[in-house]
Amino acid sequence: MDDRQREFLDDLLTTASPSGYETAAQRVWVDYVSEFADDVRTDEYGNAVAVLEGGDPTVAIAGHADEIGFIVRRIDDDGFVHLGRIGGSDKSVSKGQHVTIHGADGPVSGVVGQTAIHLREEGDDGYDDVREQHVDIGVEDGESARDLVEVGDPITVSTTIEDLEGDRLAARGVDNRVGVWTAAEALRRAAERDVDATVCAVSTVQEEVGLQGARMVGFDLAPDAVVAVDVTHAADHPGAPNDRTGDVSLGEGPVVTRGSANHPVVVDAVREAAESEDVDVQLEAAGIRTGTDADAFYVQQGGIPSLNLGLPNRYMHTPVEVIDASDLDAAAALLAGFAELAGEYEEFGVDLS
């Protein structure tokens, strides 16, 4: 990952994009892909598609731009802001956090209140539901609070990007800014190779609240195949339930998912590309569903051959998600190779003859 690619990743990670409020992050993505795409278009909800024109087939590489967060549910007369959830926000990590409320007139800083350990009842170590938690923005009454924020404003945890040892970094919202980074980078590298196929990089919205953007894009775009790039659980840290996650590790390469939505021909094509690009891949099983945009893409337009490609991630849905940047680079190289290989396919359907 060179300096420009890292700058792009940092810009994505530092731009708030809770589900339903992705516009600012989508602008970052569109500005980047516009440098090398033949065409960039957006729809009414902010899904973005960058196209590299070529011949048949058309393959799409997609990530989702939205992150989990909170929303202003109500403001009480004492000026405290009461929370609602955006997506799968974790009530066990929200208390005691610095947060930013993204108001119409600019960001407002606050903290999620937590009763001091000295004042809690002995044995009272449970986690309040998010709806029972509040943000203190430092005002004295409700009128002062309502001058700054209003019901429906999105909220994100205020964290920085921290470089760890080696190629590893920690940040909020890695899920799934790393996916849209990979989609954009795969398109850039496909452009450098002048691949024969038509390649679409896609940045969807509202994945965290029901895969909604992928439903819109899949129906409208109708590619011949799509790879949905999203994070997947790394099981290489203390406390990870390996019986639920499989044996995925950071730094060992992207993860090819098999089963359910994952079309066997696309699986084989991506694994063939990995071999030709000398990219190590890991395998993951999804016997029922992937939990990613692949689940929405594959049921559009009578069935779009789809694959979920995973990027190993520790501590998902916390403010300190950890990834290895080498996995991102490997995934981008792999998918550029897939785009090049795709020109050899007339179709990706299974052969029943």
Score class of each variant (00 low, 15 high):
82 H>I: 10
57 P>R: 07
206 Q>G: 08
292 T>Q: 02
227 V>W: 06
116 A>Y: 09
43 D>L: 02
108 V>Q: 04
247 D>C: 04
275 E>T: 14
69 G>F: 01
156 T>I: 11
3 D>R: 05
193 R>I: 03
246 G>K: 06
164 L>R: 11
255 V>H: 09
140 E>K: 09
309 L>E: 12
37 A>P: 00
98 H>S: 13
32 Y>S: 02
142 G>Q: 05
128 D>V: 03
150 E>I: 00
303 G>I: 07
24 A>H: 07
107 P>G: 09
24 A>G: 05
175 D>Q: 09
82 H>S: 05
247 D>V: 13
234 A>V: 11
17 S>D: 02
346 E>M: 03
159 T>W: 06
229 V>M: 03
252 E>M: 09
217 V>C: 02
125 D>I: 08
277 E>L: 07
73 R>W: 06
84 G>L: 12
222 A>Y: 10
168 R>W: 04
282 Q>R: 09
48 A>I: 01
112 V>D: 05
319 P>I: 02
266 V>L: 11
190 A>M: 10
234 A>E: 12
20 G>R: 00
170 A>P: 00
33 V>Y: 03
159 T>Y: 07
84 G>S: 13
281 V>A: 09
154 P>K: 07
26 Q>K: 05
236 D>H: 05
181 W>A: 05
252 E>T: 00
131 R>A: 15
308 N>M: 15
244 R>P: 01
183 A>F: 06
24 A>T: 07
22 E>S: 05
313 N>K: 04
136 D>T: 14
196 D>Q: 14
13 L>A: 02
120 R>S: 08
132 E>W: 12
256 V>P: 05
113 G>F: 07
58 T>R: 12
232 T>I: 09
76 D>M: 08
266 V>C: 11
65 A>V: 13
326 S>E: 12
41 R>Q: 10
220 D>E: 14
161 I>Q: 00
137 I>Y: 05
287 G>I: 10
325 A>N: 13
67 E>R: 05
53 E>D: 13
309 L>T: 09
43 D>W: 03
73 R>H: 11
6 R>N: 00
260 S>D: 09
313 N>S: 08
156 T>P: 03
45 Y>I: 14
323 I>T: 08
227 V>P: 00
328 L>V: 10
249 S>V: 10
